[in-house]
Simulated scan of single mutants.
Amino acid sequence: MRKAYRILYEGGTGEITEKKSRFIANFKPVQSEDEAQAFIEEMRKKYWDARHNCYAWIIGKKGEEKRCSDDGEPSQTAGKPMLDVLEGEQVVNVCVVVTRYFGGTLLGTGGLVRAYSKAVKEGLTACTVLTVEPAKKIAVATDYNGIGKIQYLLGQQEITTLDSQYTDKVELIILVPDERTGKLKAEITEATSGKAEILELEEVYYSILDKEVLLFPE
């Protein structure tokens, strides 16, 4: 059974200061380890004069791939806490780099863990994170007598119509969440007395941002 998951859709930047040390968190959506490494190198070049550029990334619907680095900070005080925040938020396809400019005061291991965690949380507030849900594209063909009933059903259930063609018959491409597919097909069949042709086209994932439907490949 396919499940919903959360992705970083748009990156952002957040910054905090702890005892004069600056912690700058930069986020970017990534689909592969190569993309993550390229972003990490980009941040290292941008902040070439910083003492540390620590990172964490998670890739895959189920977070199958993940990695983190303390980049010279004491072990387990930077990369792992950053990764923990991402896992806690259940965000995938994400890479974050936290750059530290040392302020002259040692923070201790506990202070570092809190600072890097806080920087990631602050950066996330500037990002766009989407919940991506499984759905099916379904083609529905009907005569003109049946289209009104079908459109009523779709409107009642807030089902998105992706495309429509009006010729000697009406053909719709609709987007139906996985868990509602069986019920809706039965209702369309009943409403049109079995005259509507229904064909499942492909499985996708989708999300809605600012009332716009975004589709993601399986």
Rank of each mutant, 00 (worst) to 15 (best):
G63D: 09
E35V: 05
A56I: 06
K45D: 10
V85T: 02
A50T: 09
Y55R: 08
D49I: 06
N26S: 15
C95Q: 08
A56L: 08
E42S: 10
V92E: 00
G88H: 00
K28D: 01
N93W: 01
L86K: 02
S21T: 09
E73H: 05
C95H: 08
D71N: 13
Q90C: 05
R22S: 10
S32A: 09
R44K: 15
C68S: 12
V91R: 03
C68Y: 08
P81N: 07
R51L: 13
E87A: 00
S32I: 01
L83N: 05
A50S: 13
E73S: 06
C54A: 13
K66F: 13
R51H: 14
E35H: 08
G60R: 01
R44T: 09
V92S: 03
D49S: 14
A78G: 11
P29C: 08
Q31A: 15
E65C: 10
W57S: 02
V30S: 04
Y55W: 15
T17G: 12
E18M: 13
A56V: 06
K19Q: 15
V85Y: 01
W48R: 13
E33M: 04
F23R: 06
K46R: 15
N26L: 11
S21I: 08
S21Y: 10
Y55K: 08
D84L: 03
W48Y: 14
L83A: 02
V91Q: 04
G88P: 04
R44E: 13
C95M: 12
E73P: 06
I40Y: 05
K61Y: 01
A78E: 10
V91E: 05
E41C: 00
Y47M: 12
E35Y: 07
A25F: 05
D49F: 07
F39M: 06
M43E: 14
Q90D: 11
S21A: 09
K19D: 12
A25I: 04
C95Y: 06
A25Y: 03
K80D: 11
C68W: 05
F23N: 06
I16Y: 15
E73V: 04
E73A: 07
Q90H: 09
G72P: 12
F27W: 05
G79L: 03
F27D: 03
C95N: 11
Y55M: 09
Q76C: 13
C95W: 04
L83H: 03
K45A: 11
T77R: 02
T17F: 15
V91M: 06
V92N: 02
H52W: 11
V92K: 00
K28F: 03
A36F: 05
S21L: 09
L86T: 01
I59W: 00
I16A: 14
W48Q: 11
E65K: 14
R51D: 14
Q37S: 05
V94I: 15
Y55V: 06
K62F: 07
Q31G: 10
C95S: 10
